[in-house]
Write a protein that binds this DNA or RNA. Structure first.
Lengths: 111, 111
DNA sequence: CCTATATATGTAGATTATCTATATAGTACA
DNA sequence: TGTACTATATAGATAATCTACATATATAGG
C-alpha cells in the first residue's frame, strides 16, 4: 500500500472516530486498523504529533482519565469547531474521489 | 481543495491519460483540469519533474513531434511496464477508497 | 507596433505529511 | 527474568506537493 495515498485524509479519519466517541491515541490506531482491514496501520510517530496539531488548532480537546491510577490515558473529544472541520473535509473527500473516478472512467467523457 | 489529498494519485492519473492516447505535458494539465472540473489544476512545477521521474523508471517514453518546426512538443507514450504500474495503482486506489468509506460509514460496522 | 495573455517546458527552494528509529514506562504472560 | 503488548512522545529522514522563477514562442487586443 502506497503510504502517500493516505496523505491528507488522516486528520479526517481521526475526527470521524472522535465524532462517534471519545478515544485515546492508541485506541484510534487500533480502531482504524481494524475497521480498514489493516489498510491503515497508522504509526505512533504519525498519530501523536497529528493529535497535538489538531489540539492546537482547537479541533479536539484532551483530558486525562484515571488520573489517580498508575496509567492515566489521554482521551480526546471533538470540539464544535472540529465537527465543522470534519464536515468540510468529508465534502472535499467526496469531491476528490469523484474527480479521480471521472478521470479513471476515461475517454468516454472527454467532452 | 486540500492539495494533500492529491498526493500519491497524480502518477496514476497521468498514466491513465497516456493509456488512452499519447500526450505532451501541457496537454495533460489541461485534460486533467477539464475532466475533473478543475478539482485538479496541476502546476507545471509539479508535472514536469514527475514526468521525468516516470521516464527514468521506464513507465513512459518521450519523443519529439514536429522537430523541424519552431515549437516541437515533447510527447509521452505509456510503456508495457507503465501499463502494469497503472493496473497496480488502480487496485491500490480502489482498496484505499474502500477503506476510507468503511471508516466514514461509521460505528455500524465496528465489529 | 506593442503589450498582455496563453502556450510550452523547465529548475530551485519551501512546505507538509508521512515514515523509521528511538525513548520511556507499565502490564501480562511464559 | 525477559519478551511482547500497551501507551505516549520526540527527532530525523523521505517523498510529494506547492510557489516562484526562468525561458521562449504564439496570439489577441489596443
Amino acid at each position: 500500500m502506497d503510504k502517500a495515498l493516505l496523505s491528507g485524509s488522516t486528520a479526517m479519519l481521526l475526527l470521524k472516530l472522535l465524532e462517534e466517541q471519545d478515544m485515546y491515541g492508541y485506541q484510534m490506531i487500533e480502531t482504524l486498523a481494524r475497521r480498514s482491514d489493516h489498510t491503515f496501520d497508522l504509526k505512533a510517530g504519525t498519530l501523536y504529533p497529528l493529535l497535538h496539531t489538531l489540539e492546537e488548532r482547537g479541533d479536539i480537546e484532551a483530558y486525562l482519565e484515571g488520573e489517580g491510577s498508575t496509567r492515566p490515558r489521554r482521551y480526546y473529544r471533538l470540539t464544535a469547531a472540529g465537527r465543522g472541520k470534519l464536515r468540510e473535509k468529508e465534502q472535499e473527500w467526496r469531491q476528490y474521489v469523484g474527480a479521480v473516478e471521472q478521470v479513471l472512467r476515461g475517454g468516454e467523457c472527454l467532452a
